[in-house]
Nucleic acid binder design. Structure first.
Length: 270
DNA sequence: AAGAGACCCTGGATGC
DNA sequence: TGCATCCAGGGTCTCT
């Protein structure tokens, strides 16, 4: 499941392979991958363009084209990006291919078909709801405290809401809550200023570390060169149900919050 | 308005 | 062994 660190890692590896390379043709292998505009227009607008810069907001990848439009892509659950020779046979799950002028293909593969591509004049059309980047100055204790005020939903659910803070998914929400020693079912508005401070620090620390370890590979996530991330070796609670808490030895608990599996230490997190 | 739940998808794991 | 069912979860939509 690509979250902020995985998306950034993929984008960084992709950048030197696609930058300034003319896209001479586009193959849409599954039409549902195109969100907007309609497929024929999408292909026409992408053809003969090149990516002049890349950026990331939350879990969205942003590719600026030489005509000023933006290609926005979201990998959702199982999306993968590779740049490989165009002679390689397509994989069963390849959904979208940009054929580059240098004889290589920039391919988007996505087993579960949740990933989407958007081609827009202004990225705000797609990402206007996103909250601040967790590593930016905008994501302050004051900001989070204000966002959580009077909220009754579990803090775990609120961390997954991209309008509060962008880029956190199920893995890093659980890991951050453990590091902050906060129970996932705590109502958002019940957190004290000190607790919000711990949470901001924990989120930033876990995202920083996951970035430096190139993300977390549990099953599907791969870097564009096919290699895995490393942060799965640093997980303290996620998918460690029944294993001893690294801090106190209590078996890690698993509950379901907002339909998402949630892992925590019932003794350490309050 | 906020919160809960359905839905979209596939394939690996599990159960009988 | 083979088939059916469950589960994974990001984002959007609907309903209350």
């Amino acid at each position: 499941m690509p979250e902020l660190p995985e998306v950034q890692t993929i984008l960084d590896a992709l950048f030197p392979q696609i930058i300034d390379q003319p896209i001479i043709d586009v193959s849409v292998l599954w039409e549902g991958v195109i969100d907007r505009p309609e497929t024929t227009l999408f292909i026409a607008w992408m053809k003969n363009r090149r990516v002049v810069s890349t950026d990331r907001r939350g879990k969205y990848m942003l590719f600026e084209l030489d005509d000023g439009r933006w290609l926005v892509m979201h990998l959702r659950m199982t999306g993968e990006m590779r740049v490989i020779p165009n002679s390689d046979p397509y994989h069963k799950h390849d959904r979208l291919v940009f054929h580059l002028a240098n004889g290589r293909d920039w391919r988007f593969k996505d087993m579960r078909k949740f990933g989407r591509a958007y081609l827009v004049e202004d990225v705000q059309e797609v990402i206007f709801k996103l909250g601040p980047e967790p590593l930016s100055a905008d994501f302050s204790v004051a900001h989070l405290q204000k966002s959580l005020a009077a909220r009754t939903a579990p803090i775990k659910s609120l961390l997954l809401d991209q309008r509060l803070v962008a880029g956190i998914g199920n893995i890093y929400a659980d890991e951050a809550l453990f590091r902050a020693r906060l129970h996932p079912l705590r109502q958002g508005g019940s957190l004290s200023a000190a607790e919000v401070g711990r949470l901001v620090e924990a989120i930033q620390a876990v995202i920083q570390q996951a970035l430096s370890e190139m993300g977390t590979t549990l099953r599907d996530y791969r870097r564009p060169d096919g290699s895995t991330g490393e942060f799965q070796n640093s997980l303290l609670v996620f998918r460690r149900t029944g294993e001893p808490c690294p801090s106190c030895g209590t078996p890690i608990s698993r509950i379901v919050v907002s339909g998402r599996s949630t892992h925590f230490c019932s003794k350490e997190q309050h």
